[in-house]
Design a binder for these strands. Structure first.
Lengths: 348, 348
DNA sequence: CTGAAAGCGCTTACAG
DNA sequence: CTGAAAGCGCTTACAG
């Protein structure tokens, strides 16, 4: 059952060292040597014992990913992107779903898996600048994914919250909408991304020469579909007039869209909607939802590479803060308005 | 940085063996000894090196979970359940998303992570009885999650497809519906669960003394929301009359519900709907979707425990096939019909 | 290019 | 209860 490097050495007629060189792709080896060793490996079905390799090298080849849960589409898609980015670097990912809330997030920093992983990608919602020291005291290489700054004291990848929100709002204004609602959310202590996206929304409004109207900012009580639906119902009751919505994330947008359609509004004719996150399901909603694509693959790649650099560079290495790009995905939910051509297809 | 068991021995004044006994919770230890060793551990911040432990024990404490992807709600929720079940047994889970299709599923069996894990939970959609030999030839302990039988040659956990589908259909019939549509799906070679659920649907129809009408069985071209929506549009064009739908999974049901609502049907008044899977989002759809809960936690627990037994028992251990329970979750989408009380709230 | 040997940190018979 | 020692399978100076 357990073929070891020693067996390969014996069968191939070379020393353990040489076999090891072949396995690890050392360059200076005669092709013939390499071939014979490889033949023995194939013949025996040898696979290196990773525990032994890890013990020796001090590395496990596994990184941790700490997220609140796996069943929220946003985190599932993030995890998927991180796994792909890690696989491209030969790393496996150990996902640790920790639940939401500050306490869980803190507890995770002392998690049990800590010693199985070479480093951790940590998606934090509640930690902020005052916790920078705490994060620095963690003895595992760490990269934070989040919208709150730690004053450059921690490696961090963040998305283009302000620029993305601005682009989404500008797109709505550019398509002729005049009363663009901001559908925001507060949830627990999660304020960072909401604030940043609000700033982007406001920038777009003001850049268009309009006045920022706080009355047009609605707060859902959660970031989820249900929150978007509830906020929209309240909004319709309030009798506010509007012809577009920039929602601070996709699920809010989908919840709002559902209620609007139930109330007889046509989308995008009567109301255009743009979300944020580019969740996979936005392609399949009816109509398909326009949204800000935060370039999750880029975020994941930056996180993995930054973590790898930290693992190799140690604590002295200077910290990196990276803000990734974004793009506006124009789908059916933000096509021309009722005053437009009438054709409800994708705007160019 | 690396405190070892040797350091703990030195500081505590006991031998390495004794320290090891304390760490591993050996019973016969004087409380005083245990305390002194523990003090040293705490003082030094000692954590066992898992690579060394694994090398020695031949176990990694990690199990693999092979699924098509993490971004489909169904698999995300399955993964979540498996992680919780594994954590309860002190195991970590390495998720390997492999994409869909038979080729990917086969390739995964020779996956790179094979040697990091003590065993694998393998969610297969395309493998069937003829592949039993292949599965048995994998040298890693393996438990299959799936609806296709391998003739008892492989450990397998499956859900109550027939009984669940029957219960869902019976619920619709019991609430006074007369024309219950079956919204089925074919996708690639995935036929097993569709066939089983169709059998359950048919049993319910016939048990009610009605005749099974093949015309009422509609096939979507995918198991997803979009497939359900497309099938429903076609169905409405066909002008078929019906007052209820039993959908073979929740996303089909949600897609169908959306199209029905867009066409002016009231749910459940005009059409009652029941899905299958109990995805989290069924609680938040409008109306909330009635569904068959396949007891995912039970599935996950059975899978982890069966795998653990296989890991410990080796290849001689006889194989287990476990079918888990289910329950009918009655929500708003299957309340009373138009002829009923008129109150569209949850049926009892 | 290649070999003999040490050592990563742990657990576990073996001997007291 | 406790100690000294072997060995899990690998990598890597060190010496040729």
């Amino acid at each position: 059952m357990s073929v070891t490097i020693r067996d390969v050495a014996r069968v191939s007629g070379y020393s353990i060292k040489t076999v090891s060189n072949v396995i690890n792709g050392h360059p200076q080896l005669r092709p013939e040597t390499r071939q014979r060793v490889q033949d023995a490996i194939d013949q025996l079905g040898y696979r290196p014992n990773l525990s032994a390799r890890n013990l020796r090298s001090g590395r496990s080849g596994v990184i941790g990913l700490i997220i609140p849960d796996l069943t929220t589409a946003y985190f599932a898609e993030l995890a998927d992107a991180v796994m792909r980015a890690a696989a491209a670097r030969g790393l496996a990912v150990l996902i640790e779903p920790i639940g939401s809330g500050r306490e869980n997030e803190l507890a995770a920093l002392r998690g049990q898996h800590r010693h199985m992983v070479d480093g951790v990608i940590y998606s934090s919602l509640t930690l902020g600048a005052p916790d920078a020291e705490l994060l620095k005291s963690v003895d595992t290489p760490l990269v934070v994914l989040g919208d709150t700054s730690f004053n450059g004291q921690v490696d961090r990848i963040t998305m283009a919250n302000v620029a993305g929100a601005r682009a989404g709002t500008e797109h709505l204004l550019a398509s002729g909408r005049r009363r663009v609602l901001a559908l925001a959310a507060h949830e627990g202590d999660i304020v960072a991304s909401a604030e940043l996206r609000l700033a982007g929304y406001r920038q777009a409004i003001e850049a268009a020469g309009a006045r920022f109207d706080p009355e047009l900012v609605y707060y859902a009580d959660s970031w989820h579909r249900r929150g978007g639906a509830a906020a929209m119902r309240k909004l319709l009751e309030d009798g506010l007039s509007f012809d577009a919505i920039f929602a601070f994330n996709d699920t809010l947008a989908l919840g709002a869209m559902h209620v609007l359609q139930g109330a007889g509004f046509r989308i995008p004719k009567d109301v255009a909607i743009v979300g944020f996150d580019d969740l996979d399901e936005t392609r399949y909603s009816l109509p398909a939802l326009s949204t800000i694509n935060p370039h999750r693959d880029e975020i994941a790649k930056a996180a993995v590479d930054t973590l790898l650099r930290r693992i190799e560079g140690g604590i002295e290495l200077e910290t990196h803060e990276i803000e990734t790009g974004f793009s506006l995905e124009i789908r059916d939910s933000s096509g021309p308005s009722a005053e437009g051509t009438g054709a409800a297809n994708t705007a160019a």
